[in-house]
Design a protein around this nucleic acid. Structure first.
Lengths: 174, 174
DNA sequence: CTGTAGTAACTAACTGTTTGGTTGCTAGAG
DNA sequence: CTCTAGCAACCAAACAGTTAGTTACTACAG
């Protein structure tokens, strides 16, 4: 039962639930510790502060999403659909990012995410340059639109993967 | 200086700033009272509780938005553009709604908003039935998509009104 | 005088964070 | 192998500050 990494993992699991449900301001450190089944002093030993815990949690989740849903510049509808599906299966990340954005704005986006986004824009731009996909929008706008469509579930409970994919297909139609 | 309505208005103004910036959980009652330049007890006299204040505020803001940006079923790109512009000029409402949705989900949507949304869906459906606009999506999905595009600024700082309008035009292209 | 808008002072509960001490594992002396 | 010193992991309790909400009172308009 005395396992640093296991304890950190349990805290991160509990934090994902808590932060995604209540936001950063609404999250309670006591509740996270209780859910994780360990003492809240551990949070301060391993993550420094409530915000430190959130930051590390967000980084891990974003990294995971970037890894699990790679971009396919030649199939943007599919990419949007897969992103949408990932958010549907584990809605916590979408909520985590939404809370983070509301509380910190665009300026404080995690480095890993910003970096990955830059690469994605370049990949889209390359595909456009080579004429493999629509150039109706510039690469930045196009990727912004595709990603925005993937979070359709944030706007309506009627969102489906098929609707997302169909929408993106129309956006990039020649 | 002894004016109930003026005091309520000042509190609501201050509450709009506070809630849109910090969310419901993050908002501080003391700060709202200080910003409004009146006593904290007034919040409880006029709105019952912090949540009561938020609810009334949200209702007022939503009503105002519904009044100021009426739907134009035969010009959905324009409608999305006007909505986008309204959110750009006063970003507080978008943030208010986002926080409310994160904390309460879709089920607790204010009655006025739900009612107005139903009427809009019917208006869109009518326009589709009469062949005045695209029937590529059913009315509910179509309106959901249009509204979703209008909050593009939530996803990216690169959003512009022109981008929103162009996107909707593509979504409803025959 | 009467009723209501407004206030300062207050409280009980809760917040993130720290502290002082305990527990259980393990390396190394005997 | 046995014992124990050292240490990292862990915890209960307490800390100081903050929170939403209340109350007893004052002052002013009609």
């Amino acid at each position: 039962m005395r396992d640093k990494e296991a304890t950190k993992a349990k805290l991160l699991d509990a934090a994902l639930e808590e932060f995604s449900q209540y936001g950063i301001a609404g999250a309670r450190v006591d509740r996270i510790a209780a859910t994780a089944g360990c003492n809240k002093a551990m949070i301060y030993a391993y993550f420094g502060s409530k915000e430190g815990l959130f930051d590390e949690l967000l980084k891990i989740q974003v990294d995971r999403m970037i890894r699990e849903v790679p971009i396919t510049p030649e199939d943007l509808p599919g990419y949007a659909g897969r992103l949408f599906e990932a958010y549907l299966v584990r809605p916590q990340l979408l909520r985590l990012v939404a809370y983070h954005r509301l509380e910190n704005g665009f300026s404080e986006i995690p480095k890993a995410e910003a970096e990955a986004y830059k690469h994605k824009i370049e990949a889209v731009a390359k595909a456009q340059m080579e004429g493999r996909i629509s150039a109706a929008f510039n690469a930045t706008n196009l990727l912004d639109l595709v990603v925005h469509m993937s979070i359709l579930a944030f706007s309506t409970p009627n969102a489906t993967r098929e609707l997302v994919e169909r929408s993106v297909r129309r956006l990039i139609a020649e």
